[in-house]
C-alpha cells in the first residue's frame, strides 16, 4: 500500500479509538442548550429552506471556491469548510482513457442531521432556514459531531477549539448576498437558493434535472440539502476519510503543517 494511505489509515484508526474513550461526564453536565434562541444568535429566516445544487458537469476544478471560502471565513490554515477533490476515474474498458471528476464538498445542511442529536451541549442546531450551525460559545470541542457527520464536513477549529463547518455563509445570506463559494464559482456550478420557493433557480434546476439528482451517502438517511447533478452513482459512498484537514508531505516524505 502506498505511504499516504498507510499514514492515513493509521490515524483514522486512532481517531476511532480515541473518540470511544472520551469520558462523557463533563459533556452531559452541560445539559441542553437554551442560549441558541437568545437574541444575539442568528437563527435564520423563517419560511426559507436554503439548499445548494452543484452541477458537476460545470465544475472546472479550479479551487476558487475553496480559496474564497477560506478568505471569507478565516478558518485556520490547513482547515477547510469546503473542498474540491479530484478523482481519476478509470473505465472498465481498458482502451477508454481515464477522466477526471471534480467533487466539491461542504456541509450538506441535512434535513435529518446526525450532528445535532449527538451534540451533548446543544451547540449545534438547525436554523429556521435549514442552515445547520454551531454556537461556538456552547461548543466544548468534544468532537462527537465531527465523527457523527457522515460527510467529514466538520472539524475542530485549532484556534477556537470548537466544532467548525460551512454555514452557507449565513452572514452573507442575511445581508442579501451570495456565499463566497457561489459568487466566485468560475464554472457556475454552485447554485444556492430557497428550496421552499418553487420559482427559485435551485428549485427549477432540481426539477429540470430530476432524473440526474444525487446526494452523497443516501443510505445514511440524513436527507442532505446539497444536491449534485452529473454525479456517478459510484461516488455516492466514496468519500470516506477525505477530511477537511490537511497536512502535506515534502519531497522526501516528511510531514509539514501549515504553520500551526
Amino acid at each position: 500500500m502506498d505511504k499516504s494511505k498507510r499514514q492515513f489509515l493509521g490515524k483514522m484508526a486512532s481517531v476511532s479509538v480515541g473518540a470511544a474513550l472520551i469520558p462523557v461526564v463533563q459533556v452531559s453536565a452541560q445539559g441542553q442548550s437554551l442560549g441558541n434562541t437568545s437574541n444575539n444568535v442568528s437563527d435564520g429566516q423563517a419560511g426559507k429552506r436554503y439548499g445548494m445544487v452543484i452541477d458537476l458537469r460545470r465544475c472546472v476544478g479550479c479551487q476558487a471556491c475553496t480559496v474564497a471560502c477560506t478568505i471569507e471565513n478565516q478558518p485556520p490554515l490547513g482547515q477547510f469548510r469546503t473542498t474540491v477533490q479530484q478523482y481519476e476515474v478509470s473505465q472498465q474498458d481498458a482502451s477508454t482513457p481515464p477522466a477526471f471528476l471534480m467533487l466539491p464538498r461542504l456541509c450538506n445542511h441535512c434535513e435529518n442531521p446526525p450532528c445535532i442529536s449527538i451534540c451533548p451541549t446543544g451547540a449545534t442546531f438547525q436554523r429556521k432556514d435549514g442552515i445547520v450551525v454551531v454556537n461556538n460559545e456552547w461548543c466544548v470541542g468534544c468532537g462527537y459531531c465531527v465523527h457523527a457527520c457522515p460527510y467529514d464536513a466538520r472539524f475542530i477549529n485549532h484556534e477556537t477549539k470548537s466544532a467548525d463547518k460551512c454555514t452557507f455563509c449565513a452572514h452573507r445570506l442575511e445581508a442579501g448576498l451570495l456565499p463566497a463559494c457561489v459568487e466566485t464559482c468560475v464554472g457556475e456550478a454552485r447554485v444556492i437558493g430557497d428550496l421552499n420557493d418553487p420559482n427559485s433557480q435551485i428549485s427549477q434546476l432540481l426539477k429540470a434535472n430530476q432524473a440526474d439528482i444525487k446526494v452523497l451517502k443516501p443510505d445514511a438517511n440524513t436527507a442532505p440539502r446539497v444536491f449534485y447533478i452529473g454525479m456517478n452513482r459510484a461516488f455516492e459512498d466514496r468519500i470516506n476519510g477525505q477530511a477537511p484537514v490537511r497536512t502535506l508531505l515534502t519531497d522526501t516524505g516528511e510531514e509539514i503543517h501549515h504553520g500551526h
Partner: peptide
Amino acid sequence: GVGLFAAGYS
C-alpha cells in the same frame, strides 16, 4: 489534484 490526503487528525 489538491494535495496529499495524509490526514491530520492528530
